[in-house]
């Protein structure tokens, strides 16, 4: 069905090109100085070219509306994936509770994304699926599609959301039959087998920490993680605190409470998005970054 829409687009693109070329020739075909008497206005002609575009427009609208209905109307028996968007990463929760930063879907299965945002507007955009829908805080918006071809596609955020708007892109994996189940079980075993540091690194990359925190000592939107363990850091309110388990946990859950000066207070809370195990992993990972 996306290809039908694409066909529509191509058809009109050809139409437009034709018009443009036609007009161009028309404009250019009498340069120089050619004085000629000319007809005045012609009502019949003008009415014609009022009516014809009107008719074309009606058809265009109907076509577009039909296409739109096609992919907004509810599919039978969809797989519902919960999506949480925040600055600047995506979190997908699959029906069995598994969470991942990339989108994994089985081919041929109608998907319904139930989306919401933690902070500002984002927009779920997979160009290959021809779908886009803004993600609004405190509200659910939905998007539906049925992946038809296995492969890896791009998922963008299409609604401007701040500094790392352009980095808020992840991958969509359309799995062949059985691939999706394999992903779920691998994911489950992976999280069991990872050491705390590995878990931390995994969280760092997949939950968007990487967007604001470096691990090489250079400051980004937020302070770098390198070498802060057990250091004394100054807080925005002037007090000093030691970076320990508690401080890191607090910073993940309530980032603004003990914010560091010189960094914008833009970090969202990760409460509810990270398990205890994952937080412990982050702490362990930071510890390892000496």
């Amino acid at each position: 069905m996306f290809y039908a829409v694409l066909g529509l687009s191509i058809f009109f693109f050809v139409g437009i090109t034709f018009f443009v070329v036609y007009f161009t020739i028309k404009y250019r075909h009498r340069p120089g100085h050619k004085a000629q008497p000319s007809p005045a206005h012609n009502d019949a002609m003008e009415i014609t070219w009022t009516v014809i575009p009107t008719i074309i427009c009606v058809f265009l609208f109907l076509g577009g509306w039909k296409g739109y209905l096609e992919f907004t109307s509810e599919k039978s028996n969809p797989m519902v994936i919960d999506v949480t968007a925040q600055k600047w990463h995506w979190n997908f929760t699959y029906p069995d509770g598994t969470q991942d930063g990339n989108l994994h879907v089985p081919v041929g299965q109608p998907i319904r994304m139930r989306m919401t945002s933690v902070d500002v507007l984002h927009s779920f955009y997979v160009p290959a699926f021809r779908v886009k829908q803004d993600v609004v805080p405190r509200r659910y918006t939905y998007v539906q599609f049925t992946p038809t071809r296995p492969g890896v596609y791009r998922l963008y955020c299409a609604e401007y959301c701040g500094d790392d708007h352009s980095q808020m892109k992840v991958k969509v994996f359309v799995h062949e039959a059985g691939g999706y189940e394999r992903f779920l079980s691998e994911k489950a075993s992976l999280s069991q087998s990872m050491s705390p540091e590995e878990t931390g690194l995994y969280v760092y990359n997949k939950k968007g920490c990487v967007a604001c925190h470096s691990v090489d000592g250079s400051p980004k939107v937020g302070p770098s993680w390198k070498g802060i363990w057990n250091e004394q850091v100054k807080l925005a309110d002037g007090t000093t605190i030691t970076v320990d388990d508690q401080y890191i946990k607090d910073s993940v859950l309530e980032p603004q409470k003990q914010a560091r000066p010189g960094y914008p207070p833009s970090m969202p809370s990760f409460a509810g998005q990270l398990s205890e195990r994952e937080i412990a992993g982050v702490i362990a990972y930071i510890k390892s970054l000496k």
Binding site: V118, D119, L253, E254, Q256, S269, A271
Partner: peptide, 14 residues
């Protein structure tokens, strides 16, 4: 503002 915005939910969690 910011407190309401993003910091309460963890209480429910544990």
């Amino acid at each position: 503002y910011d407190m309401v915005q993003g910091t309460e939910d963890k209480v429910t969690k544990d």
